[in-house]
Design a binder for these strands. Sequence first.
RNA 1: GUGGUCGUAGCUCAGUUGGUUAGAGCGCCAGAUUGUGGCUCUGGAGGUCGCCGGUUCGAGCCCGGUCUUCCACCCCA
Length: 458
Amino acid sequence: MSNQKPAIPKGTRDFGPEEMSKRNYIFNTIKGVFQKHGYAQIETPAMENLDTLLGKYGEEGDKLLFKILNSGDFLNGIDPLKMQASGANATSLLLCEKGLRYDLTVPFARYVVQHRDEIKFPFRRFQIQPVWRADRPQKGRYREFYQCDADIIGSTSLLNEADLISIIDEVFGKLAVRVKIKINNRKILAGIADYIGQPDKIIDITVAIDKLDKIGMDAVMQELQLKGLEVQSIYKLEPLFAITGDNRAKLSQLRRILQNSESGIQGIEETEKLFGYMDTLAIPSETELGISLARGLNYYTGTIIEVKALDAEIGSVCGGGRYDDLTGIFGLKDVSGVGISFGADRIYDVMNNLNLFQAGSKTASKVLFANYGDKEVKYCLPLLSQLWQKDINAELYPDPVKLSKQFSYADSKNIPFMVLVGEDEMKEGFITVKNLFSGEQQKVSSVNEIIEIIGQKN
RNA sequence: GUGGUCGUAGCUCAGUUGGUUAGAGCGCCAGAUUGUGGCUCUGGAGGUCGCCGGUUCGAGCCCGGUCUUCCACCCCA
């Protein structure tokens, strides 16, 4: 048999011990802030029924869903001719009834509807799990990545938005990542579509506007023309991009321009109220009204939030928004929710590039017991056990190899202390403890003395 | 999904217009040093040159396909 080459699927990654300790630092930080704000953790399965997932993320999203082939004889009852005729996409729906989740929000909506009788609203939940997208990998873009979601569902209050923004600010503050929080409102975008007289083109308009920073106004207008917008309508957009000043000034200019659009005014009022709350909370992060911010899945209906890292070129590190009727499709009407999602993998990339992870803590062990052979090991095991009982991270070298090897093992793992018990120690009844950083070495006679030397803390 | 790009030792990378036996540094192993690491010195192991096919007397190098990496678009965390 030929050797098979070890490999993992495109766009997925292994995480080694060092990466995991950094990743856990991020996860624990986010989790801690979520819990501080009263959110409770849930988990949902990696796979959902395809009909739960399909149609929630737009046409593009559906294409990016990983589908799971049915078990058993999945060809049973499938007509090959029909298969050929209907094409790959339609056929996949005959062969697959499950798919990997694409985000955490839709499974959450499903969860809320399914468990509505057990849930006390308003419900604050958080969820930290991987999601999968059959996208083509790129920088900061993976096929398997973790999202850290916090949502509050069953309340329309803008206090919830303010709460989530405060969470964003705290998380990035703790992680020492400088960010800009951009805020917009889908109703303002709808107002813009109203204003230029093309309310039916809101999706095309928002998608194009979203690229303003990147490709410039001319290119945006060109794209809109391609999408079939009237030239006249497109020119009406111009004054919108000319608004300037701080957030409040921008909002009042917008109010004048969109005065005839009901949803536009509503969006402006919501946003003004939200900025009011944020002022009261005194959020230290930079926050900005960005009417060019449109990204977001089709289900957002109100506030839209996006967070960019200031010191790194990478997509957004956190995004979110309000969705008024996400649960409606599962049969639970009139339940509004708002949520955010941290992209842990991107945050990791940013922090790694900026060297924001604290050095050290590379190892778990504080002490390595040298292994001189069976007799000595038997003598050491009770000592080791006592250290464990004192919650001190310690390990015994498993094989009686020559000492220099055991020393370099400790070196490479940054283990600060070694305990040496050989023939001499056993004969005379003492224990040698060596500090590998200073090279200092001393003889002690009890576990307590060992602890004293190495210090309690791990 | 469209267009481009990368792949040589465990890691980072050299490798001339196609020419004999593919190199370096780091790491690893052994020894100098039999109960003491980091430093130094000496020696050693380790390669289907991503994979498959083609051109050629001859391919790491040229051509085609494929997989992977990274990048732009689309879209997104």
